[in-house]
């Protein structure tokens, strides 16, 4: 099935998607998950997950709650390392160098410096709007005033928030509305120029209008950024994602071009889920 605007090279990663991963063809991938197992203590939450993340595209992870989609997302930037007793087995390869970011010898902070994350609930820091967006730059040792100013403005523009906050950059971020706070968190994530952006149900705490704005925003970021988004909202996944992965009970059940998953899934379990028979 041809996607308009995809080169032949990209095609290999898409149809059939999983074959591309298995064949290790040099596809335009930003990352790929290979046979990933994850354990919370003795409890195995991910079971041999395979997933390609195509450069410049939006990949959505869907599935019933408890299926492991958030767990998988939090593997990419090693958030699980913040809590004791968690264990990874397998690989998440980050391209172009091809390092395995879940390898024990890789510092989790290295993964987080390259991969940004937006959380389910807007979580601005109790600081000014400006300070929030500049946080990622400060953390990377970038303190040059004009450079930080420039990047803060650019990130706020990209997050479609600049016009709303340009006159209140020094005010507390807590004064913004929920939707603005979430776009602020997206700007905060964009400012240090991440290679991959993880979004963990970013609209689940927002009203429909704020949700629409975020979806619009993701559409604009497509191409410039590679995005992985977890969502429990199938309409949202269908609207915004290029590729969709359906997970169930820690397994990657099906991965394909979004339009195919939602119109003609191969797996019976996927079909049941998208037709609303469980979840």
């Amino acid at each position: 099935m041809l996607q308009p605007g995809l080169s032949e090279n990209e095609m290999t990663a898409v149809t059939p998607a999983l074959d591309a991963v298995a064949s290790k063809e040099p596809a335009p991938l930003r990352a790929s998950v290979r046979n990933l197992n994850f354990f919370y203590g003795d409890n195995q939450a991910l079971k041999g997950v395979e997933l390609p993340i195509v450069e410049g595209k939006v990949t959505a992870l869907i599935g019933p709650s408890g299926c492991g989609k958030s767990t998988l997302l939090r593997c990419f930037n090693r958030m699980h390392d913040l809590y004791p007793g968690n264990r990874y087995q397998g690989e998440i390869i980050l391209y172009p160098e091809g390092i395995n970011i879940v390898a024990p010898e890789v510092d989790p902070m290295l993964a987080r410096l390259r991969i940004g994350m937006v959380f389910q609930k807007p979580n601005p820091f109790p600081k000014s709007v400006y300070e929030n967006v500049a946080s990622g730059l400060h953390i990377r040792g970038i303190r040059n005033r004009s450079e930080v100013d420039g990047r803060v403005e650019a990130a706020l523009r990209q997050a479609a928030l600049w016009d709303e906050v340009k006159d209140r950059l020094q005010e507390s971020a807590y004064g913004l509305s929920g939707g603005q706070q979430q776009r602020l968190c997206i700007a905060r994530t964009l400012a240090p120029d991440p290679e991959l952006i993880l979004l963990d149900e970013p609209t689940s705490a927002l009203d429909p209008i704020a949700t629409a704005k975020i979806e619009e925003l993701m559409d604009e970021l497509r191409g410039a950024y590679t995005i992985v988004i977890v969502t429990h909202n199938m309409q949202q996944a269908a609207r915004i994602s290029d590729f969709t992965a359906f997970m169930h009970l820690g397994h990657m059940v099906e991965y394909d071009v979004a339009s195919l998953i939602f119109t003609n899934p191969t797996e019976e379990r996927t079909r049941s889920y998208i037709t609303g028979r469980f979840g």
Partner: peptide, 17 residues
């Protein structure tokens, strides 16, 4: 000024730490 380097995949200039 913070160092930037071209992303080998996309050619875009990317902030490096």
């Amino acid at each position: 000024v913070a160092p930037v380097s071209p992303d080998s995949r996309t050619g875009r200039l990317r902030l490096t730490v």
